[in-house]
Design a protein around this nucleic acid. Structure first.
Length: 259
DNA sequence: ATGACAATCAGAGATTGA
């Protein structure tokens, strides 16, 4: 089974790219971020026509996550636990019912800029809540994964020009430490477990010709629980999507699971 | 020091993103 994560930067603007990509990359389960759409406005029919069921957790204008799946989904839950006052649509979970049921958490982690300020405080609080959720799921000993746009550059080799990100919310020591604390619970970061090469990115800014200079960053990740990591096959970044007509600023990343 | 790009909502230009 192939599970992908893709920050599409608006379903309305990106639907043609997504519809061509799903069969091209043989995606069974797609975790989408930044759908920028309320649930009722998300176009389900084109995806159902391709054989996917659709689960969304959206809001007007910003944020929003969705799961498209060719396999049955059970126990869909919306929102990251830990703060009832948080109304930003950044987290959705479901259990994918393949040969081995896998709990899938699709996340759009806050950007956090500018630093310092309330947006960065929100990011760090959100990451702490995510760690708590991860700890809860680990106790269940069910295979699960957390994937999406982490807005986190884990290491210097994950940026073309790390020095320009030193003061940025995506690369500050506090951000990387919060990410590392989650990883240290026992997760496998799928891409780096399969590929140690630098110059592999998932995001290139629209500005300053970043794509043409490969001036990118690697911020979209798959974290696998120990039981899930045992099922991992390949992990690839669909880099070519950045060169298409009307691209998102992110590209898809996918994993193959023996599940 | 600023803007550069793109998407959204709205129907211009502010806001957000990374």
């Amino acid at each position: 089974m192939r599970i992908a994560s893709f920050n599409i930067n608006g379903i309305k603007a990106r639907i043609e790219r997504v519809l061509e990509w799903l069969p091209e990359s043989n995606i069974d389960v797609a975790l989408l971020q930044e759908i920028k759409s309320p649930d009722e406005a998300f176009p389900q029919e084109p995806f159902q026509d391709l054989g996917y069921s659709v689960q969304t957790h959206g809001q007007k204008s910003f944020n929003g996550v969705a799961i498209l799946s060719k396999l049955p989904l059970e126990d869909v839950t919306r929102g990251l636990p830990g703060d009832d006052s948080d109304d930003q649509a950044r987290w959705i979970e479901a259990t994918v019912m393949g040969d081995h049921p896998i709990r899938v958490c699709n996340l759009y982690l806050p950007n956090g800029n500018p630093v310092p300020g309330p947006k960065y405080d929100y990011k760090l609080n959100w990451m702490a809540r995510m760690q708590t959720r991860a700890e809860t799921l680990l106790k269940s000993e069910e295979p699960f994964l957390m994937a999406g746009d982490f807005n986190t550059i884990p290491q210097a080799e994950d940026a073309h020009n790390p020095d320009k990100w030193r003061e940025d919310a995506l690369f500050l020591p506090q951000t990387r430490a919060a990410y590392q604390r989650i990883l240290n619970l026992g997760f496998t970061e799928a891409f780096r477990s399969r590929n140690s090469a630098p110059l592999n990115y998932t995001f290139w800014d629209f500005q300053r010709g970043a794509w043409n200079r490969n001036d990118g960053i690697r911020i979209d990740h798959f974290l696998l629980s120990p039981e899930c990591a045992d099922l991992l096959g390949d992990c690839q970044i669909d880099r070519q999507m950045r060169g298409r007509e009307k691209p998102s600023d992110h590209v898809p990343i996918w994993i193959d699971l023996a599940a």
